[in-house]
Amino acid sequence: MTLAEQQQHYRQRIDGYLGALIDGLPALAPNLKAAMKHGLLLGGKRVRPFLVYSTGTMLGLDEPRLDPMAAAVECIHAYSLIHDDLPAMDDDKLRRGQPTVHVAFDEATAILAGDALQALAFEELAKCQVASIEAFKALLVLFSQAAGYQGMVSGQAMDMAATGQTLSLAALEQVHAHKTGALIRASVLMPTLMAGSAPEHVEALATFSEKLGLAFQVQDDILDVTANTETLGKTQGKDQRDHKATYPALLGLNQAQTKAQTLVDEALSCLASLPYNSEHLAALARYVITRER
Rank of each mutant, 00 (worst) to 15 (best):
V202A: 02
A249K: 10
H176M: 13
Y247A: 10
K179E: 09
G164F: 00
Q219P: 05
T231C: 05
I184W: 06
A170C: 09
M194G: 00
L250E: 07
S168L: 09
K234G: 01
F216V: 07
H178K: 14
M152Y: 07
L232G: 10
V225N: 13
H201S: 05
G196A: 04
Q165M: 09
L253Q: 11
L169T: 14
A161W: 03
G196W: 02
L205A: 09
K259M: 08
T166C: 07
L214M: 11
K234D: 05
L263R: 07
Q165N: 08
G164N: 00
V225A: 13
L142A: 06
Q217M: 11
Y149N: 15
N254S: 15
K238S: 12
S154K: 12
S197Y: 03
Q219R: 11
M160I: 13
Y247L: 08
T235S: 10
Q174N: 06
D220R: 12
T258K: 15
L212K: 07
T226N: 03
T192Y: 01
A206T: 14
R185Y: 10
D220Q: 05
E230R: 13
Q240A: 08
T192R: 00
L189D: 02
V225H: 14
Q217K: 11
S187P: 03
Q261F: 03
H178P: 12
Q240I: 03
G181M: 11
G237F: 05
H178Q: 14
A147H: 04
E230D: 15
T231Y: 03
V175A: 13
S144P: 07
V175T: 13
T262S: 12
L193Q: 00
V202C: 02
G213H: 14
L253R: 11
M190V: 00
L142I: 03
V141T: 11
G151D: 08
R185C: 12
L232W: 03
T258V: 14
L250S: 08
Q217T: 05
H178T: 09
A195R: 01
V188M: 05
G181E: 12
A215S: 03
M158I: 06
A171L: 03
F216E: 06
V202I: 05
L214E: 06
L223G: 14
A146Y: 07
N254H: 15
G196C: 02
R185M: 12
K238W: 04
N228L: 03
K244L: 07
L193W: 00
V218W: 09
G148P: 12
L263D: 01
R241P: 01
T207C: 15
L212V: 05
Q165V: 05
A245W: 04
A195T: 00
D239N: 03
L251C: 07
Y247C: 08
A249C: 04
M160L: 15
L167P: 11
A146C: 11
S209G: 12
T163M: 09
G181Y: 10
M160K: 09
L189I: 05
D239C: 01
G196R: 01
Q240F: 01
A186K: 07
T229F: 07
A227C: 06
